[in-house]
């Protein structure tokens, strides 16, 4: 079953075409990787999906409905959670309050929000940090807080924007385990990632873009052997050898 579909997405910033005609479909329950070199438009695609920028043309479909142009908070309520590449913790609130604030999007009252928040903290392994002020967390746990907060909105689809960037190798392994655990709980995931170890081990399918255009898509193995992908990442001469 197709949960999410991007149809001919185009995004221009003035004269710059950041995303040109990108289309893909995401199956329910899979981890869908989105890769590309720096500046290729990955985060722009995320920002278009959650409507931080209006799309220039094209449409976005979720659960069979056209969600193009819905306000950011409505998109979250519809069931698409997201994390930010540059983490945005609610600095002066405790970790628990961060998660409670997010949990209110599905909870009816404070008790329910508190319960959802505690459950999500437990699930994401941040329980031992719940009373700490968010801005005093180290980067690894801030990234984890981003995931926890978006999970507390009970999404069907989670957009992860470079959640493993800047982490130590041990933390990366923990992050991989968490992402798999989230998928196993029934949440579909679209992940943008630079660390190949992460994207290649967890993705079911990968979509590669460069200069805002699709250059390859398929299983991790197919994509990593694709000529255009090697060219984009390593340069033309490596593609021929």
């Amino acid at each position: 079953m197709i949960l999410f579909e991007l149809k001919n997405l185009v995004k221009h910033f003035g004269g710059l075409a950041a995303v040109q005609n990108v289309s893909f479909q995401v199956e329910k329950g899979e981890i869908f990787g989105l890769i590309g070199p720096n500046g290729s438009g990955k985060t722009t695609i995320f920002n278009c999906i959650s409507n931080y920028f209006p799309v220039t043309s094209g449409s976005i479909h979720f659960n069979g409905q056209d969600i193009t142009g819905l306000k950011t908070n409505k998109i979250c309520k519809a069931g698409i959670g997201r994390t930010f590449q540059v983490v945005k913790p609610l600095g002066r609130l405790s970790v628990l309050d961060n998660v409670i604030a997010a949990a209110f999007s599905k909870a009816k009252n404070k008790k329910e929000a508190h319960d959802i928040a505690m459950e999500t903290l437990e699930f994401c392994g941040l329980m031992h940090r719940k009373d700490i002020i968010a801005k005093s967390l180290p980067i690894g746990e801030r990234k984890r807080l981003e995931i926890t907060r978006s999970m507390a909105t009970r999404p069907e689809l989670l957009l992860l924007d470079e959640t493993a960037a800047g982490l130590t190798p041990t933390e990366v392994d923990v992050a991989i385990d968490l992402i798999k655990k989230i998928r196993d709980s029934g949440v579909t995931i679209i992940i943008v990632e630079h660390i190949m170890k992460v994207i290649m081990t967890i993705s079911d399918r990968i979509h590669a873009i460069n200069f805002g255009q699709t250059i390859a898509h398929g299983t991790p193995k197919e994509v990593s052997n694709h000529k255009a992908v090697i060219e984009a990442y390593l340069g033309e001469e490596y593609a021929h050898s």
Binding site: N73, P89, L90, F104, S105
Partner: peptide, 16 residues
Amino acid sequence: LSIREDQDAAESMGID
């Protein structure tokens, strides 16, 4: 409080 701390994060948490 969420709006005070980060308006973009608040929007992405489903807050109008």
